[in-house]
Structures are given as structure tokens and as C-alpha cells.
Design a protein around this nucleic acid. Structure first.
Length: 229
DNA sequence: ACTCGGATTCTCT
DNA sequence: GAGAATCCGAGTA
């Protein structure tokens, strides 16, 4: 009902390729599920131009160890003392790289999500899972319980699934909330989706890509190139 | 051992 | 739009 488990090989690629691939996929945590509508790529330190905003950019540490392991595992970290964010590890083993899940469209367990967020039942969808820490709270994802879990396993309490939802185009913008590499176009989102977080417009830094045919830029105001990998 | 700041969110004004 | 809440991990010594 929520689709099949994706192939791990599809995640053993650079984050900027895995990120748009994850758009439209389903994240399942126990009996709760949501469709991924917004992500950000964070590049590993092996790149010629290292990503200064990435947790892995100075090499392996106890915290980021998952990022250097096999692709398709959850990297969950705590932030600001009260929240968690969740990433999907990618790249081949030994190389770091990940995709931050920034927003979901709730699909299953909406009342439970609202309860987890201390919101009343029937709250608007975008209040449940729009934002990287909001979605972790809604799905009950925490570092102690979910960091390092394999997302590509039908036994896992945290899974990635592909239900065939078609994504024909997606927005590309700079990433949110970082202080380094602020212009790199590594945030990806479904256009006009109500559950996407962040500012409504990035004015001068948005591109709209179409999938199929080769990715072609329909509208580009001031795109900067992703550092070569 | 000690300092510093964060891939955020919520609550005000 | 600004400020608080709040603590763990990374970097420096």
C-alpha cells in the first residue's frame, strides 16, 4: 500500500543526485507515513570543493559516523538542544554525503502526528510535518532510537518506500538556515506544495527543473553551479 | 576542561 | 521581524 523498498544502489550516488530522487518517496516510521516534498543535499569532504555547511566536512566524528557508512541509513542529530533532524545517508561506503529531509506531506497517522506535535486533531497538514524538526517530532524520530537505522529494509522501524508517485518537476534553491555556502543550489522541493517549509520565494535564486527529457531549466534567474564532484 | 554555536521552532511585538 | 529556549558535539588548549 505504501509501495516498494527502493534499491540501495540508487542512494549510492552524490547527494545532489539523490536529493531530487527522494522527492515524492514515502518515509514510514512505524504506523506513521509521509511523502517527501522538500530536501537538501550536503556534500562529503571528498569533493574537490568541500561543503562547509555539511556535518561531515571535517571528516568522521562519533556524531557523523553514519554518514561514512553504507548508503540508505538514517543520520539523526540533535540541534538547539531541543530538536532533531533526519538525513538519508548516500554515496558509496567510506564516502560521506547525505540528504536532509525538510518536509513531508502527511499520509498516514495524522492524529498521532498531531498528538506528537502537541497540536489538536485535525490541525492543518503543513503544521504537522513542514520543517526538518517538525517532521521528526511528528513521526517520533529521535537520535537515541533512530540514528543509524537502515531505511532500505522491510524490517526496519524507519523505512523509505516508493509508491510510484510521479514527480515531473521540482524547484532548486539555496539551502535554508546555514551560514556557509549560502548560494549553493542544493535545496529541492515540489513546486507549489502546501507542506514545503521556508520562504515562499527565493526571488533571484530559484530554478524550476523538469524531469524527463534531460533536466532543462525552464526559468533561471541567477543559478550558481554546484561545485564539481 | 572550557567555550561556542547550531541544517530550528515558537512566541511574542 | 526579533528573541528566547536549551544542550550536545566539535574545536581549542
Amino acid at each position: 500500500m505504501l509501495g516498494s523498498i527502493p534499491d540501495r544502489g540508487l542512494l549510492e550516488q552524490p547527494p545532489q543526485e539523490v536529493a531530487p530522487y527522494l522527492l515524492g518517496k514515502v518515509l514510514v516510521a512505524a504506523n506513521l507515513a509521509g511523502r517527501i516534498v522538500e530536501v537538501e543535499a550536503y556534500l562529503g569532504p571528498h569533493n574537490p570543493t568541500p561543503d562547509p555547511a555539511a556535518h561531515a566536512h571535517r571528516g568522521p566524528t562519533p556524531r557523523n559516523a553514519v554518514l561514512f557508512g553504507l548508503a540508505g541509513h538514517a543520520y539523526v542529530y540533535s540541534i538547539y538542544g531541543r530538536y532533531f533532524c533526519m538525513n538519508v545517508s548516500c554515496e558509496t561506503e567510506g564516502r560521506a554525503g547525505c540528504v536532509l529531509i525538510r518536509a513531508l506531506e502527511p499520509l498516514a497517522g495524522l492524529d498521532q502526528m498531531a498528538a506528537n506535535r502537541n497540536l489538536p486533531p485535525g490541525s492543518p497538514l503543513h503544521q504537522l510535518t513542514s520543517g526538518p524538526s517538525r517532521l521528526c517530532q511528528a513521526l517520533g524520530i529521535a537520535r537515541a532510537t533512530h540514528n543509524g537505522l537502515d531505511l532500505i529494509s522491510s524490517d526496519s522501524p524507519l523505512q523509505l518506500r516508493d509508491d510510484g508517485f510521479p514527480v515531473r518537476e521540482y524547484l532548486v534553491t539555496p539551502r535554508i538556515g546555514i551560514k556557509e555556502a549560502v548560494d549553493w543550489p542544493l535545496r529541492f522541493a515540489l513546486p507549489n506544495h502546501p507542506c514545503v517549509s521556508g520562504p515562499k520565494s527565493f526571488s533571484e535564486k530559484i530554478s524550476l527543473y523538469r524531469i524527463e527529457s534531460r533536466p532543462s531549466i525552464r526559468r533561471t534567474v541567477n543559478p550558481k553551479r554546484i561545485p564539481r564532484t
